[in-house]
Structure formats: C-alpha cells, structure tokens
Amino acid sequence: MLSFLIRRLSVVVPTFLAIAFLTFVAIRLVPGDPIEVRTGERGIAPERLALLRHELGLDRPVVVQFLDYLRGLAHGDFGVSISTKEPVLREFFTLFPATLELALAAMLFAVILGVPIGVVAALKRGTVLDYALMGTALAGFSMPIFWWGLLLILFFSVDLGWTPVSGRIDLLYYFEPVTGFMLIDSLLSDQDGAFLSALAHLVLPTIVLGTIPLATIARMTRSAMLEVLSEDYVRTARAKGMPPFRVVGIHALRNALIPVVTVIGLQTGMLMGGAVLTEHIFAWPGIGSWLIESIERRDYPVLQGGILLVSGLVILINLMVDLAYGALNPRIRHGR
C-alpha cells in the first residue's frame, strides 16, 4: 500500500507544480496590465506607474517572480489580491464554504433522485416508463445549465414568486459566519425565518447545478443495475423465494452502486465547472463568481491562486478516490 501511495504521489506532485508554473507564466501573458486596468481611463503618470509596478514586484524577471511565488506557496502564501488587498488564501476559505454548500446540496439532490430513477428504469426495462425516464435523463444530460437556470428563475421566481432570484439569504438577516454554511449558520443565529430564507435561496441553484450529475447518475445506475440483475446470484436469490424488494435492494443495488460511486467521485471537477455558471446566474458569492470577477479585474494573484487551489482540490479528491480503490481492490494496487 505504501509503494502504491508513493507511486501515486510521484505523479500528483509534479502535476501540481506544473499547474503552478503554467498558471504563473500564462497569467503573465494576459493582455492588460493590472495597474492600468485599475486606473481606468483617467490614466496614470509614468513615474507613478513605475512605482506601483515596483511595489507589486511586477518589474522583476519572471523567473525570480516565480521562485518567489513557489517559496510563498510552501508557506501557505498564495499571494495578495490586487483589488481587495486580502490574502488570496483567506478569500478562498471565506468563499469556499458557499461553493461547497451548493455543491454538496447539488450532489445530494442528484443522488437522492438519480439512483431511484435508474433503479426503476432498470426494473421496468423496455416499458414506456423506462423510455420516459431515460429520455428525460438524456435531455438533462444535454442541458445548457445557464439557460436552465434562467428558465427556472423565470418560472419559479418571476411568475410564481416562490423563490428569490439571487444571493444566499435575504438582506434582512445578518449574522457572523460560524461554519460558512448558510443553512447551519442561519439555524445557529436563532433568527426567525433565517433558515427558511437560506433554504429558499439554495433550492434553484441546487437544481441547476445538480441536473447534469442527476442525469449521469440515473443513466449509470440503470446500466449497472441491468448488468447486476442478470447475474447468477440474483437469480439464486429470486429462486430461493426472497421478496423482490430484498433482491433488488440488498443483492442487486449494493453491487450496482460500485460503478455509480466511481462516477460520483469523478463528478467533482465537472461540479466545479458547473459552479462557475450557476454562481454567475444566481449571484452566489462563491469560488466561481470570485474567479470570473478576477478575470474582469485582471487580478492575477486571485486567478492564479484560485485556479491552483481549485485544481489542488480536484487532484486531492481524485487521489483519495484512487487510494480508496487501491485499499479495496488489490488488482488496482498492484497493477501497471
């Protein structure tokens, strides 16, 4: 197991360094100097520009800047945002819970609906119900989620007035974040209606972000279920008179879920991409909105640190999924 871990790490660490280097170099190529962008059309005196560039270290050779950057990373210093003057790492951890809360809610939504849909479709294989469910799933899988979000806003927020259009909670409520999860914090705050407000704000973004994972999980569960249902042990269980519910729930589903769990693990990266769009539509103050704004402001350190942190997270989750499989399945551990 230790050699497996070392082998995986020998891939992961260079990957991370390569991303650090590439984001660093690439972002230097972005057109537009951050200082010129900030001063806008008023212009700036050349000597003041030189002074500001010197203060930010932008006048040193790129290699020196990169080594400096790496030294900082080793100490947990991901740079300082040019526009807010806050450390990038602190901004990331302030906003990350918002994205995490949304992503977890979306995943929960996708699993709770997706697995039963897949099971029902598999059990009713070839019926109208199967075709209807799988047709809907393929439509969900093909959905431009930014448009889907606008449609949901149009219907539920504008026409019906059921849900708010943007943000995480009504401006009416204010409390200091404790966990960063609005649902938990609103409960802790003891303010009447705060929790319901937070919940109402979460519903539409959850549906939007969860739609594609939901469709993927439903399709995956169906095909895994179909495969398992034709196995000998399922037939044996049926033959010995076990009630259908137990056959499906205990014998079949448990084994069918193995590939499904893999898919759930692989969805992390997709979920981060979807979060960018979802947060943009609903003005959700998370990592996605933060990164998009950093592009508009030419905030190099935020973009660079943000991408690095997000990729680091994806790499870490994939590594954990890998290790979990390695622990469970010796063939993977000793393979290659």
Partner: peptide, 20 residues
Amino acid sequence: DVILSVPGLLLSIVIVAIIG
C-alpha cells in the same frame, strides 16, 4: 494529467482570458 486536473470549463475560461 495537468490538463485534466483543472476543471474543463474553468480551464477554457482561463485560456480564453489569456488569449482573448
């Protein structure tokens, strides 16, 4: 591996931000 470890949409956003 490097390309795959940055979420797809995010990577294309960064690339487009750089090359315009």
